Amino acid sequence: MKKIILVFGVLFITYFLNAQSTIASSGADASGDGTSSYTIGHLFYTPNNQNNSLIVQGVQQSFAFQVLSNSEFLLENLILLTYPNPTSDKIIVSNSNNRFHGNLKYPLFNIQGKHMISGLIKEQNTQINIQHLSNGIYFLKVTKQNV
């Protein structure tokens, strides 16, 4: 009986202690303008929100920023109009920029992401026949062909 009370007492006391324990793979102390100690490999962590800031104890948060650039990248403006919406028989894609005629292709997807039809936008006003498709919501994706 004394063993049960002892085990219960130890569990009860450790429940109310605010001690931290962890299994860490590495750690050290860092100093500069202030001091900090850190560990790597925490299994548990506690976030603290104070004064519009967030401190996450026990989690190493790294940020890596990379700048990608391409000197040959040219910004091209393409204005397309699709109408009528809603429709039951055809969609008209109106391309106002003559430079892109014949260089644009499209796939049409249903709401589940299944490819339904695809084709080329060859004229200023290209008609896409959708009479054979069931009623629903569809997504039209227009991309420039690799020419």
Rank of each mutant, 00 (worst) to 15 (best):
M1K: 14
M1R: 13
K3Q: 13
K3I: 13
K3Y: 12
I4W: 02
I4A: 10
I5V: 06
L6D: 12
L6N: 09
G9A: 12
V10Q: 01
L11W: 03
L11H: 05
F12W: 05
I13M: 06
T14Q: 00
Y15A: 15
F16V: 05
L17I: 06
L17N: 09
N18Q: 13
T22F: 09
I23P: 00
I23R: 06
G27D: 05
D29S: 14
D29Y: 15
S31H: 13
S31P: 08
G32L: 07
G32N: 11
T35F: 10
T35P: 00
T35M: 08
S36N: 11
Y38S: 13
Y38C: 12
G41W: 01
H42L: 05
L43I: 03
L43R: 02
L43H: 05
F44A: 09
Y45F: 15
T46N: 15
P47V: 07
P47Q: 11
N48F: 10
N49G: 12
N49Y: 15
Q50F: 07
Q50G: 09
N51H: 11
N52S: 12
S53I: 03
S53W: 07
S53G: 03
L54P: 11
Q57H: 14
Q57W: 09
G58F: 03
V59A: 11
Q60H: 07
Q60C: 03
S62Q: 07
F63D: 14
V67M: 10
V67G: 08
L68M: 13
S69P: 02
S69L: 15
N70I: 06
N70V: 06
N70D: 15
N70M: 09
L74W: 02
E76P: 00
N77Y: 04
L78Y: 05
L78I: 07
L80P: 02
P84M: 06
T87M: 04
D89H: 10
V93W: 03
V93C: 08
V93L: 08
S94N: 13
N95G: 04
N97H: 15
N97E: 14
N98E: 12
R99E: 14
F100K: 08
H101M: 04
H101D: 00
H101Q: 04
N103R: 01
K105T: 05
K105G: 10
Y106P: 03
Y106L: 04
L108D: 01
L108V: 05
L108F: 00
N110S: 11
N110H: 06
N110A: 03
K114G: 09
K114Y: 14
H115E: 07
H115M: 12
S118F: 01
S118G: 08
G119S: 03
G119T: 02
I121H: 01
I121E: 00
E123S: 15
E123M: 10
N125V: 06
N125Y: 09
N125D: 15
T126H: 01
T126R: 01
T126E: 04
T126Q: 09
T126L: 02
Q127Y: 10
I128A: 00
I130Q: 05
I130P: 01
H132M: 02
H132D: 07
H132K: 07
H132V: 02
L133S: 06
N135F: 11
N135I: 10
N135Q: 14
G136R: 11
G136M: 08
I137G: 02
Y138L: 09
Y138D: 06
Y138E: 08
F139E: 02
F139G: 07
F139M: 13
L140H: 08
K141E: 15
T143I: 10
Q145C: 06
Q145L: 13
Q145Y: 00
N146G: 08
V147Y: 01
